[in-house]
Amino acid sequence: MTDETTPTRLVGGALAFAVPSFPDERGVFRTPFRSSAFTPAAGHPLFPVAQVNFSVSRRGAVRGLHYTATPPGTAKYVYCAHGRALDFVVDLRVGSPTFGSYDVVELGREDSPALYFPLGVGHLFVALEDHTVMNYLLSLEYRPENELALDPFDPRLALPIPGDIEPVLSPRDQAAPSVDEALDAGLLPDYAVCRRLEERYSACQ
């Protein structure tokens, strides 16, 4: 069993939580989310879950860099249930002290964490193995008109996407704008707005 540890604090207020594992002769049982660990670390309970997704990806699949227009904004809780993925946490909130910064976490190892993404923090992952399964809990249901993307290969971000894979992207992600283009178009989340919305959501729980 993996002992409960203090969550790792990532860029932009994101959090990485240890996932307890309980192996026996049948296999292994894991607990990706526990309110007793989340609430003290985040300072509020997990958002009411509005939608649950999972994706299955081939090696080299690049999903992202994705974020939600804010308002309304969407928070995420993400876990790799099978395979391996390199997960990128990117602060896209204009005015944030860590704007444009990122953290990279490998998911899918026996000791890999679950990740919490607050409002305005972008998400990208690269599947390192075939049949990589990612699970997502979302604070709002998916609305295509609110879902936005940035070029994952934007030199300004310089995300360390592995060079030994052949990237596979959706047409939408291939055509996504750069950070500078999104800034000029006023598409990126505002740090102060994200903070106000998070405080409002927390007060309602």
Rank of each mutant, 00 (worst) to 15 (best):
D3E: 08
E4C: 09
E4F: 11
T6F: 02
P7V: 02
P7K: 06
R9C: 10
R9A: 13
L10Q: 02
L10C: 07
V11Q: 01
G13V: 07
A14M: 01
A16D: 01
F17D: 00
A18D: 12
A18L: 00
S21W: 09
F22Y: 14
F22C: 06
E25H: 10
V28E: 14
V28Y: 00
T31W: 00
R34M: 09
S35W: 09
F38D: 04
F38N: 00
T39R: 12
T39C: 08
P40L: 01
P45C: 06
L46K: 02
L46R: 08
L46F: 10
F54S: 14
R59Y: 03
G60S: 01
V62L: 07
G64W: 04
L65S: 05
H66C: 04
Y67C: 03
Y67H: 07
A69L: 13
T70H: 06
P71I: 13
P72M: 13
T74A: 15
Y79D: 08
A81D: 05
R84T: 07
R84K: 12
L86D: 07
F88C: 00
V89I: 15
V89M: 06
V89A: 01
V90Y: 08
D91Q: 07
D91Y: 04
D91R: 04
R93F: 08
V94K: 15
G95N: 10
T98Q: 12
T98N: 04
G100F: 10
G100Y: 10
G100T: 09
V104M: 14
E106K: 04
L107W: 07
E110P: 10
E110L: 13
D111I: 02
L115V: 14
Y116D: 03
F117I: 04
L119P: 06
G120I: 03
V121P: 05
V121T: 05
V121I: 09
L124F: 07
F125Y: 15
F125D: 07
V126M: 05
A127K: 03
L128E: 06
E129M: 03
H131W: 12
V133H: 10
M134G: 02
Y136M: 11
L137V: 12
L140P: 14
Y142N: 04
R143D: 15
P144M: 14
P144S: 15
E145F: 12
E145L: 14
A149P: 09
L150D: 01
D151G: 05
P152I: 03
D154R: 03
D154S: 00
D154L: 05
P155F: 06
P155I: 00
R156T: 15
R156V: 15
R156D: 15
A158K: 06
L159I: 05
P160Y: 08
I161Q: 06
P162D: 02
P162A: 00
D164V: 04
D164H: 04
E166Y: 03
L169Y: 08
L169C: 06
S170K: 11
R172E: 14
D173N: 11
Q174M: 13
Q174I: 12
P177T: 10
S178Y: 05
S178W: 01
V179E: 10
D180E: 15
D180I: 12
E181R: 11
E181W: 11
E181Y: 07
A182L: 11
L183S: 05
L183M: 13
L183T: 04
D184S: 14
G186Q: 12
L187H: 14
L187M: 15
L187Y: 11
L187E: 15
P189T: 01
Y191S: 13
A192G: 11
R195I: 05
R195F: 11
R196Q: 13
S202N: 09
C204D: 09
Q205F: 14
Q205A: 11
